[in-house]
Amino acid sequence: MSTADNTRAPDPFPAAGNISDDEREELRRHGILMTSLEELYNWGRSNSIWPIQFGLACCAIEMIAAATARFDIARFGAEIFRPSPRQADLMIVSGTVTKKMAPQVVRLWNQMPEPKYCIAMGACAISGGPFKQGYNVLKGIDRFLPVDIYIPGCPPRPEALLNGLMQLQKKIRGEHLTGPDAARHTRADVPGEFPVPTFGEHDLEPTRNPEVWTPPAPITRSGKG
């Protein structure tokens, strides 16, 4: 934490918390770098996000394009696409998740070690997109997995993916190691694995994970004018 925060639980690293930004900047000018463990940890994590090499559909081509020379996702430290979920930090759900594919996506997510993050890339991964009416299309991967960043578009441009990645970096940098608002992966009470749906006779069973997603409340336009 860069600023002292009295509302939080006792800080285990008070030295960094007791120093203001101006003072730190002053020290930096004299060649002394000060940081907190939390900050250093988040800085390292946010700049070396390894995505899983996992393309579902059209968006995967734009994901590859983001990794090539023109857009160069390596500038953000995320160029190391790992084919194995065991080595990955980030799952970019790039494309339509069909009902036949959904159990495998959940299983891949369960195989990823914590801390892990999920980006829903493209309209299909968010809500089913143009294929929403399909009988075999899952209407959004957030019915089974907690999604951190949504990137709209069909497909999103590589710049949009980079922007989503930057948002994720920002989110990681703001995470806390301790306290009541500690990051998900540091807490024992938050699940890291999710139940894998099974193939039913007409649909997936269950069709959604109620702990992750409930249908949104209806929006009624009752106001006059």
Binding site: Q133, Y135, H202, T207, P215, P216, P218
Partner: peptide, 12 residues
């Protein structure tokens, strides 16, 4: 005559 599983959410 196939009836799709009903998993639509609210649309605007």
């Amino acid at each position: 005559d196939y009836v799709e599983p009903d998993d639509f959410e609210w649309e605007p």
